[in-house]
């Protein structure tokens, strides 16, 4: 198959690609071998190093860290989506002060590094409670990002939908809550989940404000453990890294799956068949008793 960059390879190109494959493969294997060699030289590959992963105490410590990470992620995830909805609606408000406030809030917290925000919450208000400082920081930052995502979603809802909703007499809040937001959330679900992956990754900032999450636990544990005169850092950080990558990949796959599923479904929601018009009340309608039938035919 021809791509943008390469034509279908002929015999010469095939031979060249084969040679390059071998050379490239050997080079990559060489780099890998060097790393393994250095790991072995520093004693990180000794069987005793890896044995610690089998101990229940190790597993329990890592599990505690994982729970702490997931707890922060759980709260931050929920709060940030809720805050995102509120800010998105506020930014689209008809009232100027509310709109200004939401815009300033979103732009400020999106522009400042998350670590700096978390540090302010921690040092300023929650010095004894790093988890809530972390959750609060994650919430205001990711809430601001989710707000922009949702705002784009709300603006992408066709104008006719809103006009139709007003035309049948819905109030402003009803239009927002029952027409615009559900469609916006549905359209933006993959992006919202991708941002949740970012939120999960960012919980590791808790390491810096001494919240005992996954990364912190792994570091602390390896610092306090000596095997053959060395800390089992490679083992523990490797295990923790694999956990992070695994969870993030799971969430990303979920997002892609949702996106594919959304694309497979026919555009939007199917229009329901009109209900047959009920028999007109005989008392009100003496002459034209057949109107009900016309309604049925009209569908």
């Amino acid at each position: 198959m021809s791509s943008v960059l390469y034509d279908v390879p002929g015999p010469r190109a095939k031979a060249r690609n084969l040679i390059l494959s071998v050379v490239g493969g050997i080079a990559l294997l060489g780099v890998g071998a060097f790393i393994v060699f250095r790991l072995a030289r520093t004693g990180q590959l000794a069987p005793e190093m890896w044995e610690i992963l089998q101990y229940t105490s190790t597993q329990e410590r890592i599990f505690e860290g994982l729970v702490a990470t997931l707890k922060a992620f759980f709260f931050a995830g929920i709060f940030s989506v809720v805050l995102g909805v509120l800010l998105a609606v506020a930014r689209l408000s008809d009232h100027l002060p509310i709109r200004w406030f939401a815009t300033a809030f979103i732009e400020l917290f999106r522009a400042v590094p998350l670590l700096i925000t978390i540090f302010v919450f921690w040092q300023g208000f929650l010095i004894n409670d790093p988890m809530w400082a972390l959750v609060l920081g994650l919430t205001v930052y990711n809430g601001s990002v989710q707000a922009e995502v949702l705002r784009a979603g709300i603006l992408s809802v066709p104008k006719g939908q809103v006009e139709a909703a007003y035309a049948i007499g819905m109030r402003k809040s009803q239009v927002m809550l029952t027409v615009q937001i559900p469609q916006a959330v549905r359209a933006m679900m993959p992006t919202i989940i991708s941002q949740l992956v970012v939120t999960l990754k960012d919980t590791s900032l808790g390491y810096i404000i001494v919240y005992e999450e996954l990364l912190y636990v792994a570091r602390q544990f390896s610092d306090n453990t000596l095997i053959n005169g060395a800390n089992p850092e490679v083992v523990l950080l490797g295990a923790v890294g694999a956990l992070y990558v695994g969870i993030c990949l799971l969430l990303s796959w979920f997002a892609t799956w949702l996106e594919k599923r959304g694309r497979r479904a026919k555009t939007g929601i199917k229009v329901a068949d009109a209900e047959p018009v009920a028999e007109p009340d005989k008392a009100l309608d003496g002459k034209d008793g057949k109107d009900g039938k016309d309604g049925k035919d009209g569908k």
Partner: peptide
Amino acid sequence: RNTPLVLLFVV
């Protein structure tokens, strides 16, 4: 892309 940056810093 799926590793937290702080973990990369620690490594």
